[in-house]
Amino acid sequence: MRKILFLFLCSYVVSVQAQSLKPDSIFAQMKNVADWQWKTLETNGWKNPKKDWTSGAMYTGMMAFAKLANTDTYYQKLIQVGEDNKWKIGHYRHFADDYCVGQLYSELYSIYKRPEYIADFKSLADSVVILPHTESLEWKKSIQLREWAWCDALFMGPPALAYLTQATGDAKYLDKASELWWKSTAYLYDKDERLFYRDSRYFDKKEKNGAKVFWGRGNGWVIAGLVRLLSTMPQSHRDYKRFVKLYKAMSGRLAKLQQADGTWHASLLDPESYPSKETSGTGFITYAMAWGVNNKLLPYRKYKTTLDKAWAALSTSVHPDGKLGYVQAQGAAPDKVGYDDTDVYGVGAFLLAGTEFFKLNLNQGSKVLIK
Rank of each mutant, 00 (worst) to 15 (best):
R2D: 09
K3T: 13
L5T: 06
F6Q: 05
L7P: 00
L9V: 10
L9F: 15
Q19E: 13
S20W: 15
F27S: 03
M30V: 07
W38F: 14
K39T: 13
P49D: 08
T54Y: 01
T54V: 14
G56I: 05
T60L: 15
G61H: 02
M62L: 15
A64Q: 08
A64P: 00
F65M: 08
Q76D: 13
Q76V: 08
L78N: 02
G82I: 10
N85S: 06
K86I: 04
R93T: 14
L104Q: 02
L104A: 03
E107N: 14
S110Q: 11
Y117G: 01
I118D: 01
D120S: 08
S123Y: 06
T134G: 07
K140P: 02
R146A: 09
W148G: 02
C151W: 02
F155C: 01
G157V: 10
A162N: 03
L164Q: 04
Q166D: 07
K183C: 03
T185E: 10
A186Q: 12
Y187M: 12
D192V: 15
L195M: 09
L195F: 08
F196N: 10
Y202I: 09
E207M: 13
A211G: 05
F214Y: 08
W215T: 08
G216D: 06
G218H: 10
W221T: 01
W221N: 05
V222C: 11
G225R: 04
R228V: 12
M233T: 14
P234W: 01
S236I: 02
H237S: 13
H237Q: 12
H237F: 03
Y240R: 04
F243H: 08
K245I: 07
G252Q: 09
G252S: 06
K256H: 13
K256I: 00
T263W: 00
H265F: 04
A266D: 08
D270N: 14
E272L: 15
Y274T: 11
P275T: 12
E278T: 11
S280K: 08
S280D: 05
S280Y: 06
I285H: 06
M289T: 05
A290D: 06
N294D: 11
N295G: 04
Y300E: 09
K302F: 00
Y303P: 10
K304S: 06
D308I: 00
W311S: 01
A313Y: 06
H319Q: 13
G322H: 07
Y326T: 07
A329M: 07
A332W: 05
A333Q: 09
P334M: 06
D335I: 14
D335E: 11
D340C: 00
D341V: 00
V347K: 06
V347G: 03
G348Q: 03
E356Q: 14
L362M: 12
K371M: 07
